[in-house]
Amino acid sequence: MDEREGPRRRRRGPRQDGGPAPVPEGARADAVRDLARRRAGERGPLLEVLHDVQDALGWIDEPDVRVLADELNLSVAEVHGVVSFYHDFRRIPPPAHTVRVCRAEACQSVGAEGVYAAAQQAVRTAGPDVELQQVFCLGNCALGPTVEADGVLHGRVEESRVQQLVAELADRPPAPGVPETLPTADQEARR
């Protein structure tokens, strides 16, 4: 299992004489295991389970990968490979708020670049609680520029509007789905 992970992988806790790292235990591990078991009857459920874990716990932590590998009878490398392939999966705790600005062709044709630049500036002012992501098409291409703020879609967004959206987010409590608890010191250390 662990041997296949490659040398860059940072390890949690002491490791006994070169053997595989133990499968994590604890409340989070139990929650992850439970989410995996709920899809026990499904074919090839890994992607769905990863979505479930991220929806419930905010991100896919490295120990979660080992729990999932154990529970779903996959190698750690396999689970890790899937988590790292897809843009959606977060491997560190999410910020309180996320703004996604579409920068694909149709939105570019109506000024998405200006909207993105305005969002960059607004996010700098808003501080670390708001994260800006670029995305390529949200399926709102007739009514662009398109911005998604904490999962809510906005069309025909002008530069002033995206700044307003970012400012509103910064004033709000964390988005649903973002866990209240901060990462543990241990988690911080691994980042």
């Binding site: 074919r43 090839g44 459920p45 890994l46 992607l47 769905e48 990863l50 979505h51 396999e78 490979g81 899937v82 392939f85 897809y86 843009h87 959606d88 999966f89 995305v135 390529f136």
Partner: peptide
């Protein structure tokens, strides 16, 4: 089945891999 933010998963064989829970 939900995708996870990868344009290439629209290509049919990539989509099949993804449905099966792989990269």
């Amino acid at each position: 089945r939900r995708g996870a933010g990868a344009y290439i998963c629209g290509e049919e064989t990539s989509m099949l891999e993804s449905i099966e829970g792989r990269r």
